[in-house]
Design a protein around this nucleic acid. Structure first.
Length: 215
DNA sequence: ACATTAAGTGATT
DNA sequence: AATCACTTAATGT
C-alpha cells in the first residue's frame, strides 16, 4: 500500500501541488484510485451514471456532444490539471452524463468518489475554487465553440481545429484522416477534403494520406 | 494481385 | 456548404 500512496502522491504533486492545500492532497491520496486509460477508449458515454470524477494527470480527453442519429461535434478537450467540470453537477444531483468523453491521448487520472466532491466543497477553499474555475473555464470554451460555429466559415473552423491539435500534441505533424476531422466538426468528408486541398495549395498546410502538417 | 480504405472531383441543390 | 455518384490513389494481406 505504501507504493500506491507514493505513486499517487507523485502524480498529484506533478500537476496539483500548486492548486490544492496539503490536507486536501492527503485526503485525495486516501480516497482516490489511479487508472490509466488507453487512447481510443471511452471515458464516459452519454447516459452513463457518474460515480467518480477524474483529475487528469496525463493525456487528453475529447468531449463530444452527440445527437441520437449519430450527429456529433467536438466541444473541448481535457488536459492534465483539468477535470470534467460539467460532471460535478451531474454527480451531485445523481444525474446522467450529457456528454461523451473519448481518450485522445493515453490518459492517467485520479478518480475521486462522488461523496467527497460534495464534502470537500465546504471543507476546502482550494477545492471550491478549483471547481468554480473549472466551470468558468469550460463555459468560456463552450462560448468559444458557439462563436466558431455561428460566425466562422468552414475553412476557418478547420484551420482553428488543426491549430488546436498542434498545440495539444506539441507537434505540427498530425496523424488524422479527413473523415475524422469531418466528424469532429460535424460536416461531411467531401467538404473537409476540398478545404484541406485548398489550404494545401495555399501553403498553409502540407497534407498526404492520413497526415496533415501545419506550416 | 486483390480488396479495402482514404482522398479527389464534377454536377446539382 | 451539403450530397450524390463516381474515380483515383494509397495501403494492407
Amino acid at each position: 500500500m505504501e507504493t500506491r500512496d507514493l505513486l499517487i502522491r507523485e502524480k498529484l504533486n506533478n500537476v496539483y501541488s500548486e492548486i490544492f492545500e496539503k490536507e486536501l492532497i492527503e485526503e485525495i491520496i486516501k480516497v482516490c484510485y489511479f487508472k490509466k486509460i488507453k487512447s481510443g477508449e471511452l471515458l464516459i458515454n452519454i447516459g452513463d451514471e457518474l460515480t467518480h470524477i477524474p483529475l487528469l494527470t496525463e493525456g487528453v480527453v475529447k468531449i463530444i456532444r452527440m445527437e441520437n442519429d449519430g450527429d456529433e461535434i467536438a466541444l473541448y478537450y481535457l488536459e492534465p490539471g483539468d477535470t470534467c467540470a460539467i460532471s460535478f453537477a451531474n454527480c451531485i444531483k445523481k444525474e446522467r452524463s450529457i456528454f461523451k468523453g473519448i481518450v485522445e491521448k493515453d490518459v492517467e487520472a485520479l478518480f475521486i468518489p462522488v461523496n467527497n466532491i460534495d464534502e470537500w466543497i465546504v471543507k476546502y477553499k482550494s477545492w471550491r475554487y478549483y471547481i468554480i474555475d473549472s466551470y468558468h473555464f469550460r463555459l468560456i470554451e463552450m462560448v468559444e465553440s458557439i462563436d466558431n460555429l455561428a460566425f466562422l466559415q468552414m475553412n476557418d473552423r478547420l484551420m482553428k481545429y488543426l491549430n488546436g491539435k498542434v498545440k495539444m500534441n506539441n507537434t505540427k505533424d498530425l496523424e488524422i484522416t479527413h473523415q475524422d476531422i469531418a466528424r469532429d466538426l460535424n460536416t461531411s468528408r467531401v467538404v473537409v477534403s476540398r478545404i484541406i486541398k485548398q489550404l494545401h495549395d495555399d501553403n498553409k498546410i502540407y497534407s498526404t494520406r492520413n497526415k496533415v502538417r501545419v506550416l
